[in-house]
Design a protein around this nucleic acid. Sequence first.
DNA 1: GAAAAAGATTGAACGAATTCATTTTTTAAG
DNA 2: CTTAAAAAATGAATTCGTTCAATCTTTTTC
Lengths: 208, 208
Amino acid sequence: MAGLRAKQKADRTRRILEAATTLFREQGYDSARIEDIAEMAEVSVGTLYNYYQNKGDILVATVAMEVTEVLEGGSRIVASPPLNVAEALRALIEQYYDHSLYYLSKEMWRTAMAISIQQPDMPLSRRYTELDGQLCAQVVQLVQTLQARGVVHASVDAKAMGEVFFNNLNMMFIEFCKVDAMPLEELKARVNAQHEPIAALISSIKIV
Amino acid sequence: MAGLRAKQKADRTRRILEAATTLFREQGYDSARIEDIAEMAEVSVGTLYNYYQNKGDILVATVAMEVTEVLEGGSRIVASPPLNVAEALRALIEQYYDHSLYYLSKEMWRTAMAISIQQPDMPLSRRYTELDGQLCAQVVQLVQTLQARGVVHASVDAKAMGEVFFNNLNMMFIEFCKVDAMPLEELKARVNAQHEPIAALISSIKIV
DNA sequence: GAAAAAGATTGAACGAATTCATTTTTTAAG
DNA sequence: CTTAAAAAATGAATTCGTTCAATCTTTTTC
């Protein structure tokens, strides 16, 4: 048998996610009706609710996939970063930001972030929060790696510094998503302007 | 006359806000039905929608009042801060955090933040964002004041530093609101652990 | 102070997410 | 292969936020 039921289940899960992502991108999150998503996925509305707890859940599932990819890309940079604090940070953050709008629109990000804040206990919100934690850990890891290679001064608290960098880049990303007119380049420039002077402060080779 | 109409208008605005805040606190945002809020405020549902654009708008109005009070308290601290970076930051942030749960529950904060992210163009979301900007400016101001008094090293970029501190305390507050079980003290302790080593880095009197 | 104009209020109707009792499909047992 | 039990799918009914044409109240005009 190999489980007909399991096969159908996987198939439907995928079809629903694909249909939803397509419609969210095409018409925006609010305009995409559950009934339309169900129709496109060739399931009934009730079935859709057997697979996902609510509309937001479907979106958060997509975002979680996206963040997973970003994490993979980031780990490559952390493994062998540029040996300069400002540059290393910029490289990692650029990887995060550039990837962010590839599958998702700003509106989709806004909705997903709003849901993960408002209903933090939904299973997929937990997943999102967990991935955020992994991104944070990655930034901390970068600072630690740079410290191990002597690029960051030994007296620096790498964990505190990494967390603060991460919270800053994350908050700035939220602001970026709130303003439809802001281009990616402006976001990067602004975050860089914040991080560069701090990077200088913690670099081993001080320009005093 | 002195405007009967204007008087009634002010009265209704207040009654609606009071009714909504009461019900939001009593039953939570989602469970408080518009119909109930309207009934308690002794207006019709339609009238309620003449005064506020939507349900979230009413909540964000409450939050905006709350943030305004916090800003006032903060300005007193910025005017004459403790002459020590870590302590000054801690004092300002404590003022922010301690006030935060006085009128609003974590759930109300979560909802308000979610709305201001998801619908950034609603008038009251703009107001919320603007107030956030003022809070950020206040933290920047604190760093500048400390720098002017020689407590922060002259080479530090006060604007960048202040913005990063603010984004960090803001993001940490979001995480705090997401976890119902976390006490205020834990939030303060965690933020302090992040800020203290950075405060040491930028202090004029270095302990090398 | 009566009539017209402007401004507000009202609640029934609408639309979309979500629920749940019923029906259908799949699996397991004999 | 038949049948009972378990699992899943279904869509009509429910719920709640939001809208809007009709009605009522206040202000202005003459």
